[in-house]
Nucleic acid binder design. Structure first.
Lengths: 153, 153
DNA sequence: TATTGTTATACTCTATAACTATA
DNA sequence: TATAGTTATAGAGTATAACAATA
């Protein structure tokens, strides 16, 4: 590659390419979900709630790799849109739980289909072999680095 | 993979893994440059200016894939930190040019080294073969999708 | 005292659109 | 009228820290 004396070129960085593609994927997805009236961060919350049905804000924050304050604000927005509800935890007077409304449970799988479609658009041009290699390499970085936060897709 | 009837799983999406890793790379890099008093977006501007020495804000916006307003604000911050200067274009009364100060020209290669180090930390656990495959696959997505914006790394 | 959740505050990043000065 | 640049405004995303209620 470069000699040691050469100033490193920004475009030589793998992180550069990763971010370029990742930004593109996320922005394309953001445009798709925007038409359904939600943001990408809101989608992540909805997707989590669809799986577990009922979840404490603090658990959700851990799963998303976000702070409790961030989750509180996202929950406010989803509640304002009629997609989620907040209820007191019957077993702990301090606790709250979040869950999807019927509208939220209906919308979430539709958003998941948009994510499928987005993936197909961006990665569909790759060979099946390259898609598999990309998935394997990304997962190995996740394992190596001990990542566990849920990103905003 | 999944049967057609199964709700798509968020973690099945390649975009999910891409974003998880990309966010991690960027956040790790942001922490490194923060210690030098600049943000990631500011670094991208500095790196561009180091290459071309003098650049109009509108050219910079094109290269970065940002709006002129965004560049204007980033330039303000760099100027405030004594890292860049703004000068009138002698050939066009409407035009301005941006360039690095001596402090900026000194700092930029140091930031590039941090980017090298960040890449090494995140991707160093991969085999050389996998690093090459990742670079090739990412570039092929960039080509397929006609991406050309400079991302913020 | 520790924990849960909310709220207050602040900052980065970004975009759109209005505005100013020049061409 | 068109272009270069700045400024105003807005909103997403995020974090830290203060706070209230409960354990």
């Amino acid at each position: 590659m470069d000699s040691a004396a050469t100033t490193s070129d920004l475009t030589d960085h793998l992180g550069y390419w990763l971010r370029l593609v990742s930004n593109h994927v996320s922005q394309a997805f953001a445009r798709k979900v925007e038409a359904r009236g939600v943001t990408v961060a809101e989608w992540v919350v909805m997707r989590q709630l669809l799986d577990v049905e009922v979840l404490a804000p603090s658990r959700l924050a851990e799963r998303m790799g976000a702070t409790r304050g961030t989750v509180s604000k996202l929950a406010d927005r989803l509640i304002g849109k009629g997609l989620a509800i907040r209820s007191p935890d019957p077993e702990d007077g301090r606790g709250q739980t979040l869950s999807l409304t019927l509208a939220g449970r209906t919308l979430t799988p539709e958003l998941a289909l948009l994510a499928d479609q987005n993936d197909a658009e961006v990665f569909g041009g790759l060979s099946a072999r390259d898609r598999a290699a990309l998935a394997r390499i990304l997962r190995s970085i996740v394992d190596n680095r001990g990542l566990k936060a849920m990103p905003i897709e």
